[in-house]
Design a protein around this nucleic acid. Structure first.
Lengths: 213, 213
DNA sequence: CGACAGATTGATCCGTCTCAAGCGTGGTGG
DNA sequence: CCACCACGCTTGAGACGGATCAATCTGTCG
């Protein structure tokens, strides 16, 4: 399992920073770079005409995103302050013609994201609110810390709602119920603990990183 | 704009046929081939634990699908009888190390599908039933024939419902209303005409093929 | 000419959204 | 250092869209 970061070390790159709420790129823009999260959290989103927003993915440190051939197919924004490695697109594609490994990893990456999104649709459309939230929280916990530990929640309720297709009010109510039932425990709105491993059978909302950190 | 079919002509391939309802591959299986639709229609789907099903894409002649690195990340099934070109995966990857063009097109293809899925989520989660159906039908019409002409509908109501996250009953009711309003006209359950171009601003539910047939 | 799957229609129920109002907290400026 | 303000989060009451359950209709194929 080769590491994307080292495979990309030969590409033209630089470290970039974005502040909370800043837009990294917008749907429709010409695509000229690929990014990798160094620290912080990024959201991929589709902006509906009516002002509604659908978040199609959260990216965490180590994740690659923004690999589009011509146009950006979604928008990306910083959830909190973030640091990213920005790779010039032509340079990455260039490099991939010389490294089968890289090509392979690139395809794997997009594939993984497609997979995650496909399952997101499945869950968001077929699961009731309570199960959606549980799926999200336990998925986050699995990826970020593990059951039992305190898990940081970088995004706010609206972000979570826009990911799960729930109104913030509904989300809040569901979380309250979940706490009353002792299934999760919140320490403030931005950190929680999953008490009961519960539905381990649920697929994960985030890519299970194969390697690397 | 290079043609995927010709770029793949050097890969190990053969023509395969599936009959109506047959499974082409199942989620979790090892991935050993990529397919291209020759004739008929294929659905990509995620099977939920509770028997629910989410269709994450319909594939039409010319479309490439099933490019997964290790495991199949979704299931694929034949909607009617279909003919596919089956390319051996190792052979395709092998070829892509020699052809930058192919690598490029491969990435573009997955990218396009990710894009389509992302917008599907947006529409299915934020649009009311009526708009969802309209989006689907006019998207199909645009891709398959053009407004005004009679458009074949290869899939049944359940398939459409599972794509739009609507119960077949609701779908049926919406279609009835749309007909009464003179917006669409059905000639039997498997062919329709869009009377009013209506909301052209809606993004398309299917990849707008850049080239090829 | 049956038989069966798919499609339609009807009546009712329930989950979630919406609108509206409180609450808490962190940040800012006096 | 404290008071204020603004934003995010929570809580409540009500409305509504779509799901569900159940029955009937239609076309299609043997």
């Amino acid at each position: 399992m080769s590491d994307l970061a080292s495979l990309l070390s030969g590409a033209r790159q630089r470290l970039v920073r974005y502040k909370k709420g800043q837009i990294i790129f917008d749907e429709g823009e010409p695509s000229s770079a690929v990014f990798r999260v160094v620290s912080g959290c990024v959201r991929l989103q589709i902006n509906g005409a009516d002002g509604h927003r659908q978040i199609v993915g959260f990216l965490f440190p180590g994740d690659l995103f923004g690999l589009c051939v011509d146009e950006r197919t979604s928008s990306a924004g910083a959830i909190g302050d973030v640091e990213l490695t920005r790779y010039a697109l032509d340079s990455v594609l260039q490099l991939s013609t010389q490294s089968t490994e890289l090509t392979f990893e690139l395809i794997r990456t997009i594939n993984t994201q497609f997979n995650a999104l496909a399952h997101q649709v499945e869950h968001v459309t077929h699961l009731p609110a309570r199960e959606r939230v549980l799926w999200f929280l336990s998925g986050l916990a699995d990826r970020r810390s593990g059951i039992g530990a305190s898990v940081p929640l970088p995004m706010n309720r609206r972000d979570i709602g826009d990911f799960l297709a729930l109104a913030p009010e509904t989300l809040s109510r569901v979380i309250k119920t979940l706490q009353e039932q002792g299934i999760v425990a919140f320490r403030g709105p931005r950190a929680f603990t999953v008490r009961i491993p519960a539905l381990k059978s649920l697929p994960q909302p985030f890519e299970q990183r194969p390697a690397a950190a």
